[in-house]
Simulated assay, not measured.
Amino acid sequence: MHIRNLAAADPQLADDHSCFGCPVRDLAICNSLTQIELAVFRDSGSKRRLQPGEPLCWEGDEAAYVYTVTRGTLRLSKLLSDGRRQVTGFAFPGDFLGVTMEDEHPFTAEAVSEVELCQYRRSRFDAFVDSHPHIERRLYSAAASELAAARDQLVLLGRKTAAERLASFLLQMTRRSEQSPGKPLRATLPMTRTDIADYLGLRIETVSRELGMLKTSGLVRMVGVHELWVLDREGLELRGAD
């Protein structure tokens, strides 16, 4: 597979790279840095913006950069040998991407919505981590969370029914969505139904049918194409066997 150029010369990169007002400051791996360390870290990177459908990297590309998602959602996928696509996950604001023991990206990452990222050349990032060991602990924590998510996904795909898979997914999405006091539990769904189906290992018709059953049961309510309210959290948890 041909390597796509992810160089900082991309015209979509912004010159301003201030961390002031960053919406994911408390979630990102850089939250362990002091103000002075953060300034050094900030100056070693740049911003990158993607439009919906635009790739950040392709499976097999050189892993030359690492990224922190600051806005929007990315879809992570792998192409199977028979041409089918398996969505392996989604990256949300605060998530860190690109760390690998290999020289190539193990997945394709594409923007689901408008996306903004902080981008760092991998060699410079590795040098920064070597001189700031405490950020390595944050990387370890992020890796542990990713491993736990991978285990959950194995259980979801290997043991759960279609209804359980969708219910579990919707509950996961409530934990990644902004909530408002006094309002029903909210799940923002920026991805398409096809993306959800490919993530859950289901047909899109099955996803639509199971979602309809959840609505008929009074467990959820769609309030837009990409937003859902959980009206009965306990009932949804029972449905998802979480």
Rank of each mutant, 00 (worst) to 15 (best):
Met1Cys: 11
His2Asp: 10
Asn5Lys: 10
Asn5Thr: 10
Leu6Gln: 14
Ala7Met: 07
Ala8Ile: 09
Gln12Ser: 14
Gln12Asp: 11
Ala14Ile: 10
Asp15Trp: 13
His17Trp: 07
Ser18Met: 09
Ala28Asn: 11
Ala28Leu: 09
Cys30Pro: 05
Ser32Lys: 04
Val40Ala: 15
Asp43Gly: 11
Ser44Tyr: 01
Gly45Pro: 02
Lys47Arg: 15
Arg48Glu: 11
Arg49His: 15
Pro55Glu: 02
Cys57Asp: 07
Trp58Gly: 11
Gly60Pro: 04
Ala64Cys: 15
Ala64Ser: 15
Tyr65Cys: 15
Val69Cys: 09
Val69Phe: 10
Thr70Asp: 08
Thr70Lys: 11
Arg71Glu: 15
Arg75Phe: 01
Leu76Val: 03
Ser77His: 08
Asp82Thr: 05
Gly83Phe: 06
Gln86His: 09
Phe92Gln: 05
Phe92Glu: 00
Asp95Gly: 01
Phe96Val: 12
Phe96Thr: 12
Thr100Pro: 05
Glu102Val: 10
Glu104Met: 08
Pro106Val: 06
Thr108Gln: 06
Ala109Trp: 05
Glu116Ile: 09
Tyr120His: 14
Ser123Ala: 15
Ser123Trp: 12
Phe125Ser: 03
Val129Gln: 07
Ser131Cys: 12
Pro133Val: 01
Pro133Met: 04
His134Ser: 07
Ile135Pro: 04
Glu136Trp: 12
Glu136Ser: 15
Arg137Trp: 13
Arg138Glu: 15
Leu139Val: 10
Tyr140Phe: 14
Ser145Leu: 12
Leu147Trp: 10
Asp152Lys: 03
Gly158Ser: 08
Lys160Thr: 01
Arg165Lys: 15
Arg165Thr: 02
Thr174Gln: 01
Arg175Pro: 02
Ser177Leu: 05
Ser177Asp: 01
Glu178Gly: 10
Ser180Arg: 13
Gly182Pro: 05
Gly182Met: 02
Gly182Val: 01
Pro184Ala: 05
Asp195Phe: 00
Gly201Val: 00
Leu202Pro: 00
Leu202Lys: 01
Ile204Arg: 13
Val207Thr: 03
Met213Leu: 15
Thr216Met: 06
Thr216Gln: 12
Ser217Tyr: 04
Gly218Leu: 05
Leu219Val: 05
Leu219Tyr: 01
Val220Met: 00
Met222His: 11
Met222Glu: 10
His226Lys: 05
His226Leu: 03
Asp232Gly: 03
Arg233Phe: 03
Glu234Thr: 07
Glu234Leu: 09
Glu237Ala: 07
Gly240Trp: 02
Ala241Asn: 13
Asp242Arg: 12
